[in-house]
């Protein structure tokens, strides 16, 4: 009985472990996201977190307005640079994702502006820029 149980477990484990070697699909699917894109995504997340932190620091009085404006400008500039690199790195985007993305862009650009915005007042000029875009 014990022998049969061990045999069953070994067979099950072998099935689970060897399955990817019997399929060619995995490699094709997984190669879509390059490590460069992943690294840039991580950089982007970091920069976003830093922009949010700077805003919290400003709102809680740890940064003067002038310092905050300068820091925010720098960080957003860095974030824009990362987004540009991301777009360049994502050139090999599959056609169905590209089509989906273009549809999203279209909808996003024509979506009505939110009534209330949580950003500090000094971003008013950016909002108007966003509208004109």
């Amino acid at each position: 009985m014990e022998f049969v149980a061990v045999l069953a477990i070994v067979a099950l484990v072998a099935l689970v472990v060897i399955a990817p070697l019997r399929r060619g699909r995995v490699e094709q699917v997984e190669q879509r996201e390059s490590s460069e894109v992943a690294e840039l995504e991580a950089e982007k997340d970091s920069r976003y977190a830093e922009i949010r932190d700077a805003e919290m620091d400003f709102r809680t009085g740890k940064l003067s307005e002038a310092d905050y404006r300068q820091l925010d400008r720098t960080l957003r500039g860095e974030a824009v640079a990362i987004l540009r690199q991301l777009d360049r790195a994502g050139a090999g985007e599959p056609p169905e994702e590209a089509a989906q993305r273009r549809a999203e862009e279209y909808a996003e650009e024509r979506a009505p502006e939110p009534q209330a915005d949580e950003r500090p007042p000094e971003h008013a000029e950016e909002r108007s820029q966003q509208r004109s875009a």
Partner: peptide, 16 residues
């Protein structure tokens, strides 16, 4: 989610 627009606006939207 990915959003393509003006880059500055994209940053702002992602953050919002």
């Amino acid at each position: 989610r990915r959003v393509r627009a003006g880059y500055a606006a994209r940053v702002a939207r992602d953050l919002a």
